[in-house]
Amino acid sequence: MAERRIRHSPLAHLHLAARVVVDPGDAGARMSERPPRAQLAVRGDSGDKAFVAAFKAGLGFSPPLAANTVVTHDGLAVFWLGPSEWLLVGEVPGEQLAAALADRHHALVDVSDSRIAIGLSGPRARDVLAKLCPLDLAAPALAPGRCAGTILARGHMLLHVLAEDSYDIHVHRSFADYAWRMLEDAALEYGVAVIDGGG
């Protein structure tokens, strides 16, 4: 049988497409559902130079090795999640990595359907997030281009700071409905516009 993949978004029941506006007006917060992207969990010992070298060879660039950092390159974002853990999102070079890492102890796990990303931006985006996340969002550790695995209300998120007032919030699929509702409820005070999440 031929492969027939029809993907359903975990936010489909919210009918967000029907709410998308072109001009967010004076809404303090803009929210969007990001398109699904391939995701790969990578495990290996960042203290093992040979592993890091192989990882770099597989990626074609150096992986992030410091806490809260992300390296973005040609449609691929590599998130540092821990000393032995990374998440690749986007144009994942799966086979290339598997080949490069073959001789080192590692794990590659396709988790493409694990998470979705919600975009949050606008002049009050940080205020919205500060209602749900205990981290200091103004800290240098969370400057644009940084990331953090942290709390979103009573769930978990991988927070990616895209710019001063713009975030991608990666949440597990089963929590997507909760995360969206929480964010939208927190943003109501400032006005919410649903915008296109990009293609």
Binding site: H8, P10, A153, R154, G155, S174, F175, D177, Y178, M182
Partner: peptide, 18 residues
């Protein structure tokens, strides 16, 4: 706070929930 009603606690949904 806003942890009332449907937002009291996360309600995890499977893809077939709907």
């Amino acid at each position: 706070g806003r942890q009332v009603g449907e937002l009291l606690d996360p309600l995890r949904r499977t893809p077939m929930h709907g």
